[in-house]
Structure formats: C-alpha cells, structure tokens
Design a protein around this nucleic acid. Structure first.
Length: 573
RNA sequence: GGCGAAGUAGCUCAGCUGGUUAGAGCACCGGAAUCAUAAUCCGUAGGUCGGCGGUUCGAGUCCGCCCUUCGCUACCA
C-alpha cells in the first residue's frame, strides 16, 4: 500500500467554474483519487478556493459586498457544486484561512533569511478615484501605434504591440472609467528566482514522470532565464507582510501576491484538515521531512498553471531550505474549448458547473469530460459531440446492456439469478479477455492517461455486449433453458463488474447499478480477479430493474441548449 | 515582435526515440440478430498525414522556408 498525495489546482474564487476548469484539474484529481483508494492505497486529496488578488476584490466590489463576505459566500458555492459533481476531497480549504497566513509568512521569512527576497521600488499606475494601484490589464486607452481605442495597458489587442500603460493615450481605469491616473513609486518584495535556477533545473531534470507538456513549459521558462518575481501587491485583502512578527515597515497596506500564497495553500489546507480530528491526523507525514519521503505526490492542473508549479512554487519550497515535499508527478491539461473559442468566465462563454447540473446529472458530464479530456492537445466542446458520446457510450452501450439483461431475465426467469447449467468455454474466453482489458484499464489510469483509460473502459462495455450476442440467451431459452441461465447469470455478474470499474468516473451510476443488484456495499471495491468476481452473484440472488440509467439527449435539446448557451452563434462579443 | 503549441479520414482525437498495406470512436453504407432506452453485434468504405523543398535505402514522424489557428510574453489568475 502506497501513500498518495493528490492536489488539484485551486479554483479561483470569482464565481462558479466552467467545464474547462473542471476537466483541467478538479475532476481528473477526483477520478484518480477514487481509483487509487479502490486499489487500497492511502490517499489524501486536497483542494481549496484561491481567494486573493485583484479580480477577487473587484468581483466583490461589483457584487456590492465586502471581500471577506464575498469570498466566504463563493467558497460555499464552489464547495456545493463540487459536492454535487461528486468531487470527494479529503479537505476543501481556503487560501484565506489562518493556517495559510501563518505558513505563507513563515516561507517568506525563511526565504528572506536565505537571501532570496529583497525589496525593490518600482513605478506603477495609481488610480486616484479608485484609490488603488492598477495592474496593467486594468488600464485601457488609445494605442499609440495604431490608434485602437481599447488597447490594454500591457498589449494592444488590435495591432498586437506590447505596451507600457504610461504610453497609452487617454488612459483610463477599467474599474471605474476614471482618467484620473498617475504613476507612483511603490516598494515590493521580490523573490530572487534567478538565484535558484540550478536547483530548479536539477528538479525538472529529475522528474522524468512529468509529461512532455509540463517539462517543456518548465524548460522554456528556465531557458528564457528566470526573472525575479514580485511577490507582494498594494491590496488590502490578502496575507499581511510581516517582519519579526509585526507589520513590515512600509508594507502596512500591502499583502502577498496571490501566486505566492496560493500553492502554499495546498499545505495549509492539509493543516486545516489535520486540525479537524482531534490529533489523529498528521499533516507532516504528507508534507514534511523523513516521514513524508515515501509519499507519492501528484498535482493536477491546466497548462496556464504549469509555470507556477514547476518553477515558482519549487523556488519557495527549495529556497526555504526546509525538507518540504515537492511534486513527483504533474499532470497538465490543455484547454477545453467552446466551439473553437476559449471558455471564458469574464465573458460568460461556455457552460458552468451550476448550469451543467441543471441540464443533466453529474455522471453524464464526468464521463464525457474524462473520456474526451484535452490531454494531447486542445479539444473542442460542442453539443453535438457531447450528445453523441452520451447517447452512444452511456445510454446505448452501457445503459442498454444493463436494461436488456435485467428485463430479459425478469421476463423469462423472474427477478433472481436462475438455476441450471454451468460455465463453459465461452465464459472462460470472456474471463480471459476481460482480465486483460481490466489490467489495461488500470494501467492507463495509473499512467494518468485518462482518454485512453476510458476508451479501454468503453471497450470493456462492448466486450460484454459481444458476449451476450454470442451467448444469445433469448435464442437458447427455447431449446436449452440451462444454457440461457448460464448466459444470464454471467451477464448479471458483468453488470456488477461494470459498476465496480466505473466507480472512479461515474460514481452515482455505479451505486445505482450495485443497488439494483443488492450489492451497495461493494462500492469502491476493485475487481481484482475476474474469474472470482464473475461468481459473486449466485443462483437465487435477487435483483430489481433500475430506471433507465442514462436518458438520451434528443435533437430538440441540442437545439435548445445551443440557442441558450450561444453555442455556434457566439464568437466575439 | 519574441517564444511555444497545433494543423492526420465528414466530426472528435491516437500515432514513443523515422521502418512492412496510417489507427480508434462517432457519423455513413451493407449484413446478422430481435432480449433491450429503434438499443446490440459483424463487416465494407473513407485520408497524396496544411503547402513547398531537403536529409535518408526509407518521413505523418528529422531539417529549412511558407500558410493558417491558438496560447504565453512574467503586475489577470
């Protein structure tokens, strides 16, 4: 039994996440955690909301709420929808929690003591009417090169020029529209990443398990030369900057940069988790020192997060000179696109977790997203594709199998496994084939190859339909009811094996299937030996016919959803 | 502008260090079956692997140039 630490990139606090966020980190982390638990490993799955930064403050402002209230409310919302999607975290924390405050300050202190942090003074645009410094992207104006009127402070979307906000003509704040801007000096802490290049390079080289996507992004940053990174901001909401346990002089109105404290929250959330069970849980054995050495740590994230996890966060951990655990495997995902465009929170483009659950139960989404996860390249979501996968794989191949087997059995033999006959060569062949497929499925899950894993799972569903076609109990019944009974008993045991195998990805359906067979207690059990598993349900064991497992999506629904969510018609604003 | 990723059957995607007739699923067409959510199973067909040039006995796979799309470019996260 191994110990496996799993973290998902932290969902940002500014509203319900879309399907792209879900498939890029939280969902695969959950699927992997469920699978590893089934295999008997000790798993700790950690996630949290990422609550600091300018967008959180502005979102609160727009909602007319205090930031702390806004974050608390949205944390609960995200937790609720995560639960509804079946995300089973051991702990779903908050980056704004007290543990993270302490730990972030602790790291900063160590890094400074180790000569990896220094103060630097820079110039930044200040909006007098908003009473805040503005990040470049919150400033717009007329592009000095092409005259485009909505150029952002960092880049003109029209001509592509890289800009400095002070170059913009008639610059204004996108927060309030105010043109009352000025450039002010501001002093910040900088993390001297450049000093850590050799250590980080060594780390990247040693991590042969990182996918090509992840390693190439990490190496790109290293090859371009690591910049020292500003790790504080002129904001109120966040983690205060201290010096010797007191507010750091000159930093009274500043906080740590969200990207400095967010990954630390993985650890802090584990501490929160540990604090919840009267001393029986120990976060150190997952994160710190000798006792965490044998932990296998797997991180899940979208590709935008990769640089922070391969470079910046390791600088924090290694630079502390304390024995912290760093990631053994990093699973990076490409983008799930919406009809060729990005899903977008700010433009409300795409389907969001709450809306998705309004349309269909979580399992429909979980299966579709994982079976089509953007692993090798960006992938496009369309309603037609989604409906095709749901209808074919879930409704026809899986759902219909369950239905046809149980209905047939019920009508010919009654609602229990019938007596008569004995397994023969056909069942032996099935056992052998299925054993191979199950092993392949497991291997793909272990390799974090989700598309391939669920292609394999689907193949298993097809294998069982094949078996049934060959056994053809409906024909056999007329001449040789015993032969039909064998086919039916085997098929019903196959349903149970299906349910077990599908647990990581469609847990609710898995439970419904087990319940129909009176085997709810088997949820989470891994079918180790197929020959034995095919004998678990015995002659006389009862069953009931569950409602249709998956409803098909019809053309009218596709039409309606396409209209409702923009679909093809979307595009630029 | 710089850097990166991608362009493979109608659609969504696989193809590791170059090696026999380029793969899967869906859709399509033909057949079998009729237990089942008109659901299943079998089979056929379908691609000059973005373009041009090069290296090689041999390239989707390596090199160069070009075209197209997307992402990043460090103060959005």
């Amino acid at each position: 039994m191994a110990r496996i630490l799993i973290t998902s990139a932290l969902p940002y606090i500014n509203g319900v996440k879309h399907l792209g966020n879900l498939v890029g980190s939280m969902l695969p982390a959950d699927v992997y955690a469920r699978y590893m638990r089934m295999r008997g490993h000790e798993v700790l799955a950690i996630c949290a909301t990422d609550e600091h930064g300018t967008p959180a403050e502005l979102a609160a402002l727009e909602a007319g709420q205090d930031v702390a209230d806004y974050c608390a409310e949205n944390h609960e919302l995200q937790k609720k929808f995560g639960d509804a999607f079946g995300l089973e975290w051991d702990y779903f924390g908050r980056s704004s929690g007290p543990e993270n405050h302490k730990l972030t300050q602790h790291f900063a202190e160590l890094l400074e003591a180790n000569g990896l942090i220094e103060e630097r003074t820079d110039q930044q645009v200040y909006s007098i009417d908003d009473a805040r410094f503005l990040p470049d992207r919150y400033i717009e104006g007329t592009c000095p090169k092409c005259g485009y009127e909505k150029a952002r402070g960092d880049q003109c979307d029209s001509c592509g020029s890289l800009l400095d906000p002070v170059d913009l003509i008639d610059a204004y704040s996108t927060v309030s529209g105010s043109k009352n801007l000025e450039v002010r000096d501001t002093t910040h802490l900088y993390l001297l990443q450049s000093k850590m290049v050799p250590e980080i390079r060594e780390l990247v080289k040693s991590r042969t398990d990182w996918s090509p996507l992840v390693s190439s992004i990490a190496n790109k940053w290293l090859d371009e030369g690591l910049h020292d990174r500003c790790i504080t901001r002129d904001l109120k909401w966040g983690i205060p900057v201290l010096k010797d346990g007191k507010p750091r002089p000159g930093f009274e109105d500043k906080v740590f940069y969200v990207w400095f404290d967010a990954p630390i929250a993985y650890i802090a959330a584990t501490q929160e988790w540990a604090s919840h069970d009267g001393g029986n849980r120990h976060w150190e054995r997952w994160w710190y020192g000798e006792e965490a050495k044998d932990v296998s740590y797997v991180q899940f994230m979208g590709k935008d997060n990769v640089p922070f996890h391969t470079v910046s966060f390791p600088v924090t951990l290694l630079g502390s000179h304390e024995p912290w655990k760093s990631a053994d495997k990093i699973k990076g995902f490409n983008w799930l696109n919406w009809y060729g465009d990005k899903f977008s929170t700010s433009m409300k483009r795409g389907v969001f977790m709450d809306q998705a659950l309004d349309l269909l139960p979580a399992d429909y989404w979980r299966y579709y997203l994982m079976a089509n996860a953007p692993e090798g390249s960006d992938t496009t979501f369309t309603w037609e594709h989604f409906a095709g996968v749901v209808n074919k794989d879930l409704a026809d191949v899986l759902g219909n199998f369950v239905n046809r087997v149980l209905r047939f059995t019920s009508s010919k033999f009654g609602d229990a496994l019938p007596n008569g006959g004995a397994a023969g060569p056909r069942e032996a062949a099935l056992t052998e084939d299925l054993s191979k497929s199950v092993a392949a499925y497991a291997a793909q899950l272990e390799a974090l190859e989700f598309r391939k894993a669920f292609q394999e799972l689907r193949g298993i569903w097809v294998q069982c339909n094949e078996y049934l076609t060959e056994a053809a109990p409906w024909s056999a019944f007329k001449e040789d009811p015993d032969a039909a009974a064998v086919g039916v008993r085997t098929a019903i045991n196959l349903i149970r094996i299906y349910a077990l195998l599908a647990w990581p990805v469609i847990p609710e359906t898995s439970k419904r299937m087990l319940k129909a067979l009176g085997r709810e207690g088997d949820a989470g059990h891994w079918p180790e030996t197929i020959a034995e598993e095919l004998q678990v349900l015995k002659v006389g064991d009862g069953f009931e016919i569950p409602d249709v497992l998956f409803q098909k999506i019809d053309d009218a629904q596709i039409e309606e959803w396409t209209v409702r969510f923009g679909g093809e018609a979307s595009g630029e604003e």
